[in-house]
């Protein structure tokens, strides 16, 4: 029960951060990605601000086995830099550059009731579903 409340709170604060930072606004995101145009560097500071807070905490916490609520710490264990990582990153980056949405902002903008954000989110969920059904066979993890 407690872990549900903390997760809800974390999601809410995450979403408020996306709204405050401008990251939930595709126009602003594309202004950052348009390095050859009139460049808006703001979003570099979003990442800097986030990492300034989370890096010390992650470094202090990562040796632990349990969270403060006695949940097993589940950190990624895969350290391979493989074809899937690079091809996946390329696909994601292209989609991000086309629409100006990455997953978090798409959900926040959907929560704001914007029809276009909802369309993007549904397509994103479909993309995840297609991956689930097909990707394991299409692209070998290693190589």
């Amino acid at each position: 029960m407690k872990t549900t409340v903390t997760a809800l709170l974390a999601g809410l604060i995450f979403g408020l951060g996306l709204l405050l930072s401008g990251m939930a606004n595709p126009e602003k995101v594309l202004g950052f990605l348009d390095i050859a145009g009139a460049w808006d560097p703001s979003l570099a500071l979003v990442m800097a601000g986030a990492i300034a807070v989370s890096l010390p905490a992650f470094q202090l916490f990562k040796g632990r086995k349990e969270s403060l609520l006695k949940e097993t710490l589940q950190l990624p264990t895969n350290t391979h830099i493989d074809r899937r990582l690079v091809i996946g990153g390329l696909m994601f980056g292209i989609g991000w550059g086309l629409a100006g949405f990455c997953p978090g902002p798409a959900l926040v903008a959907s929560g704001a009731g914007l029809e276009k954000a909802l369309i993007f989110t549904l397509a994103m969920l479909a993309g995840m579903g297609i991956f689930r059904l097909s990707a394991h066979k299409m692209i070998p993890a290693r190589g």
Binding site: G88, I94, L98, A99
Partner: peptide, 13 residues
């Protein structure tokens, strides 16, 4: 874009 982001983020973890 949504299809690419959904598929790509899962493939790239």
């Amino acid at each position: 874009a949504g299809l690419l982001v959904g598929f790509g983020t899962r493939l790239g973890s």
